[in-house]
Write a protein that binds this DNA or RNA. Structure first.
Lengths: 247, 247
DNA sequence: AGCTCATTAATTGTCCGACAATACTACAAT
DNA sequence: ATTGTAGTATTGTCGGACAATTAATGAGCT
């Protein structure tokens, strides 16, 4: 017989510690929001040295299962939502060069049907959040008060996120997140080159909100499609190449 | 004057070390494939203790910028792939309860236009990979030879991944990944309940491949839409609720 | 009691040094 | 050419230490 035995993988201790802690967070025996036990206590319970625990903690930290509240010392258990994907996306895109063309094409595909779903399924709370997001962008980008570029693009992305919440589909929300991660740097490069950009965004968001509120799926889809087309137009008006890499 | 100075964030050393190393990997001054310098050497260069370096290395490791080749001691610089998102998705979904309905709706939105793009833009290499994926599923799921359930669903997901490669849009590939992560457990629960499921998948994949090869975008989209509808039909035939959580 | 402030305890970040286990290398022996 | 051997390099883990800083405690005051 010709048995190919595969190389058994021997994991270092810090990885096992990380796995143990991860499991206890995911199965909620360490519930979200509580303070982590002190490192030395973890070390005692698990029978390893504190350094080993610390290496494991760094793993959980970069995985987003632990976070340190501002200026606080002890770390807090947290459950990552859609932003868990964000880090991964950021890493993945640092390799492959993504152009605005790519981002735009993906948005063209995903956002209009998402707006449609949002119109059909929104609930009072999610609709309110959507309206708030639109109102905030409108207020911050009126003629009299124009907020900084980076904040503006974040608000644009937030509008899409609220729309995802209206659509009430966690899978879509996850799928949308890569686009939004990349939309921000894309818009960032363009928005100040085109004077009328902010005003057009305000209008589009208003129309979309109205359609969603009226549960008019077709109209929501169409206005969203127009909104997305405007992004491309903005690039063309700014004289920027659609193929140049974002970020 | 009313200067509100915001709380400056003092980052711990291990984080700065991680940032420094990350930068040197991303700007390719530490090119992919090379061995990392020894920890003690890094510590010397950066003027910190080895423990601090190690904590930083854990961060890079979980970020996928470093990997340890099987049973090897020194770590190797590497480039993160699309599956960087996978971990994040898995964690995010362990929290919110996702139903097949959600997965199905997202696929309905994303996959048909993706097939369309694949038909338009595939290159010889990516087309070959797509054909191979379809051929592999066909061979493994013929009447005479039926492969295990988990392998079958993985091959189904792989077909979609190859299609994503054909579409040649990294953003779409990233957006699609959450769906595929969730498609596998969804299919896993269904595929053996419906005798004709595998045969129907074989047919659908064949049609899609043919359409893509012929650069017939409309046909690719339509067959993909049919393919996706079949998944839902499979659930109904199996008498399973669309609303029950997957995984 | 409730509040402010000083004092103490607890906790993290970082360091030092050490050692066993093992992967890597060079070289000798079969 | 493979196998064995010795030596080195490197990682994984450990014990302990200490300064800086946050959290907790209690004293004093209203």
């Amino acid at each position: 017989m010709n048995v190919e035995l595969e190389p058994l993988r021997i994991e270092p201790g810090y990885r096992k510690v990380a796995a143990a802690l991860t499991e206890r967070i995911l199965d909620r025996s360490l519930p979200a929001g509580v303070h982590m036990p002190p490192e030395i206590e973890l070390a005692r319970q698990l029978g390893v040295h504190r350094s080993t625990v610390r290496e494991a903690l760094r793993e959980l930290e970069t995985n987003g299962l632990l976070e340190r509240r501002r200026g606080s010392k002890r770390m807090v258990v947290t459950r990552p939502a859609n932003n868990a994907v964000a880090e991964g996306v950021r890493r993945a895109l640092s390799l492959s060069d993504v152009s605005f063309q790519h981002v735009w094409e993906a948005m063209t595909m995903i956002e209009p049907p998402l707006a449609e779903a949002a119109a059909r399924r929104h609930e009072p709370a999610s609709l309110t959040a959507l309206e708030d997001a639109a109102a905030q962008f409108r207020a911050h980008n009126a003629d009299t008060q124009v907020v900084g570029r980076s904040e503006a693009v974040r608000e644009v992305a937030d509008f899409f996120r609220r729309l995802g919440d209206c659509a009430a589909n966690p899978v879509l929300i996850l799928a949308q997140e890569p686009l939004l991660q990349l939309l921000e740097p894309s818009l960032d490069a363009m928005i100040d080159q085109v004077p009328q950009a902010r005003a057009r965004i305000v209008t589009a968001e208003r129309r979309i909100v109205e359609a969603v509120r009226a549960r008019d799926a077709a109209s929501a889809r169409d206005w969203m499609a127009k909104h997305i087309r405007d992004f491309k137009r903005g690039y063309e008006l700014a004289g920027m190449s659609l193929l140049q890499p974002v970020g």
